[in-house]
């Protein structure tokens, strides 16, 4: 509830200028509450200790969404050795793959750690809040879905995504669009079925359920097995919470996670600017008209007085 209203509030700050006073007062009432996400939001808990790197989720995703044939079979594990940009990047989501699994050879553990990557389906998604045509929707089921019909192709969402998940069909001249995991929203989520990757995972490394419940489950797993897990649920707090969360046995930065992310929504970063919008819209006209009248009045009607110095700029 509060989240919806808050987003609406921010909308009003951007659009409205006239109702500056009203918008200012609503800042106070909503700033107190933090957005906790939709109560019925679904989520997935990824337990990296269970993942064996079989890439079945990748295959399931590919078939579910009718994505292009892969370059290599899904049971070709040489892909884990692929690195790009002088070894600085492992495989990532592309316009042909909503999800990829990467292998991380950590020092702490003998066995490698595998990590599945896909859209995290943030509770307060940066892609959504940065999109100027509202092409994204956070559904009440928790999925962040994209509407190509209104997309202009500015790729702001790709810049804004803290996980760099969205891909883009750059090669399409006429209808390029963002490609990203949609939580199997249309075909499965709305029909009471889990996402294809979750259903396919042999190890049940992916646990599907209400996000609320999954947070408890995650902490319970850590509590009952403190030696096995790092005491952190990645995605519980990151960028204001994500629907996809992770448990790991190795420190998260060793498994390729960005551990420097802020714990409040990305949207909050724009607040200090959006706060001045009503002020500028409301006060500037009067202020500068006042300056103008002062300047005019002081000089009289003739502009013949010569002054060499400049004021300010």
């Amino acid at each position: 509830m509060s989240g919806i209203s808050r987003r609406k509030f921010l909308k009003s700050t951007v659009v409205a200028g006239g109702s500056a006073a009203a918008a200012m007062s609503s800042t106070k009432s909503f700033a107190m509450k933090e957005f906790e996400g939709y109560p019925e939001s679904m989520g997935v808990l990824v337990d990296l200790t269970r993942c064996i790197g079989c890439r079945t989720c990748e295959a399931a995703c590919n078939k579910e969404h009718g994505l292009p044939e892969p370059e290599l079979p899904f049971d070709d594990f040489s892909v884990f050795d692929q690195v790009f940009h002088e070894g600085k990047q492992k495989r990532r989501t592309t316009e042909k793959a909503y999800t990829v699994v990467n292998r991380y050879d950590t020092k702490a553990q003998g066995a490698p750690v595998y990590r599945k990557l896909q859209c995290f389906h943030c509770s307060e998604p940066a892609c959504l809040t940065s999109c100027f045509v509202n092409a994204y929707t956070k559904t009440k089921e928790g999925a962040v879905i994209y509407n190509a019909d209104v997309c202009v192709g500015c790729r702001m969402c790709m810049v804004a995504c803290p996980f760099s998940m969205p891909a883009y069909t750059y090669d399409s001249a006429l209808h390029p669009q963002i490609i990203k995991c949609n939580f199997c929203y249309d075909n499965r989520l709305t029909k009471g079925k889990p996402p294809a990757c979750v259903e396919a995972c042999p190890q049940e490394a992916l646990t599907f359920g209400h996000r609320k419940t999954l947070v408890k489950t995650a902490h319970e797993r850590i509590r009952s097995n403190p030696k096995k897990y790092v005491d952190h649920v990645y995605g519980e707090k990151e960028v204001g919470g994500t629907s996809w969360m992770y448990l790991s046995s190795v420190p998260f930065d060793q498994a390729g996670f960005n551990t420097t992310l802020q714990h409040h929504p990305i949207l909050d970063n724009t607040k200090s600017f959006l706060g001045i919008v009503p002020m500028v819209l409301g006060i500037w006209p009067a202020l500068f008209m006042g300056f103008h009248l002062l300047a005019k009045g002081g000089k009289g009607d003739k502009e013949s007085k010569d002054k060499v110095e400049v004021h300010g700029e």
Binding site: R7, V14, V133, V150, G153, C154, P176, L267, F273
Partner: peptide, 21 residues
């Protein structure tokens, strides 16, 4: 822009009013 002919979309078709862009 990927689809420059849609430049007017944020003005007419669909408003992403929370966005700085």
């Amino acid at each position: 822009l990927g689809m420059p002919w849609r430049l007017y979309y944020p003005m007419v078709i669909s408003w992403g009013t929370a966005a700085v862009l």
